Simulated assay, not measured.
Amino acid sequence: MKSLGSIRRDFAPWADPGAKPYISFENVTKKFGDFTAVNNLSLNIYEREFFALLGASGCGKSTLLRMLAGFDEPTAGRILLDGQDLRGIPPYRRPVNMMFQSYALFPHMTVEANIAFGLKQDSMPRAEIDARVADMLKLVKLEQFAKRKPHQLSGGQRQRVALARSVAKRPKVLLLDEPLGALDKKLREETQFELMDLQQSLGLTFVVVTHDQEEAMTMADRIAILDKGEVMQVATPAEVYEAPGSRFVAGFVGNVNMFEGRIAGRTAAGAEIAGPNGLTIATSDAGGAEAGTAVAFAIRPEKIKVSSRKPADILANAMEGEIFDIAYLGDMTVYHVRLDHGQVVKASSLNASRITEDPLTWNDRAWISFPPDAGVVLTR
């Protein structure tokens, strides 16, 4: 079997039938009056996993995090942590810590006092507090800022203080609610890798809520795609992107082109999809879809080649159209091509060299093409 994307690390307990989940949501429902925020949801998360809950606003991801933290109780179902039912256990008794988007630092306290606050609340001996705070400052590389107040720090530094305070008590699980939302794009990208390194060095289980697809794809071992309080798919970033389980997931994660049609027939090489206006697409894998089944052929823009000439490869799916929009992004160029049968297709081309061998511009006639194994057939 071909690998889907790069492998992050040698860590995949979810693929082991004998592995026991560390966190389990079992048929969990949460209602607020007549509104159902989480609908009969079941989900397993494993120890030392960096797990992301990804979805649009209102999909239920923050509600799940709040129920795990103890701020809300499920209307039905149960949540288990390391085999223990969490119902009725108050937040301060749970072996979890939550880091909020606002960071919630104490403005009148120094960096080291902020980090030490929870340890003092637990009546830890002073010597142990000092040692733990020193360890945390070193971990997040803020030793020289120990005596500063939050307003004297940059956004990225405040984020690291909040993170150090969250892990200082060494919780079993760290919950992060949009942890990088307040940072600018470049700092957010840098901090994503810092979080990954920190999680692996501490050996903790991280559960992060985000609506940022790139953030989830970068940091998480697995991602749960949520919609209207239900899990649409749980998989690794590569599987979510390369093998989405539904039209919703394919359309939500990244950019995608959808060719709607029906399976016209199965062949030794795969199947043929018949679309509107005489469109036909050859695919090497139609799964279990039988002839006559309504399907969508989903293909990412980077899998599509744009050329001024018809491709020589007779096995390639080739369609002609007209370029009506171009976006130059530096590292790549994105083309919007209106095909002769009417559908608009987005294709992206990597700018690997400074000189374009086959220059294309607005209103040019162009061919798009892709091999039969470039996309995925979706039946739902």
Rank of each mutant, 00 (worst) to 15 (best):
A37G: 08
L41K: 01
L68E: 08
L41S: 04
L41G: 06
L64R: 00
S42F: 12
N39L: 01
P74R: 11
L65G: 04
G58K: 04
A37L: 06
L64F: 00
S62G: 02
V38Q: 07
I45G: 02
E73N: 14
L68D: 07
L41C: 04
V38A: 03
G77Y: 12
A56D: 08
C59K: 03
P74W: 12
L41H: 06
T63R: 05
T75H: 13
L54P: 09
I79E: 06
V38N: 05
R48V: 11
L65A: 04
G60L: 03
G55Y: 03
G55K: 01
I45F: 03
D72W: 08
I45P: 03
E73F: 14
E73T: 15
I45V: 14
G55M: 03
C59Y: 00
L65H: 03
E47K: 15
A69M: 11
R48W: 13
L64Y: 00
M67F: 07
G70V: 14
I79Y: 05
G58Y: 02
N39W: 04
V38D: 08
N44S: 13
F71E: 09
T36D: 07
E49N: 10
I45H: 04
G60I: 01
A52Y: 07
C59D: 00
R66A: 09
N44T: 05
R48E: 15
A52Q: 11
P74G: 11
V38P: 06
R66C: 04
S57V: 03
T63K: 04
A37V: 11
F50I: 15
L54F: 08
G77M: 11
L64V: 01
G55D: 04
G70T: 13
T75M: 13
R78K: 15
C59W: 00
S42V: 14
D72T: 13
S57P: 03
G70C: 11
L64G: 01
P74N: 13
S57W: 02
L68A: 06
G60S: 04
M67G: 01
S62Y: 01
E73D: 15
E73K: 15
M67K: 01
A52D: 07
S62T: 14
G70A: 13
R78P: 10
T36N: 05
G55E: 02
T63L: 03
L43Q: 05
R48N: 15
R66W: 02
F71T: 08
A69G: 08
A37H: 09
M67W: 09
S42A: 12
G60E: 01
P74M: 14
D72C: 09
L41Y: 02
S62C: 05
L54C: 06
R78D: 13
D72M: 12
G60A: 03
T36Q: 12
N39R: 08
R78V: 11
G77R: 12
L64K: 01
A37F: 07
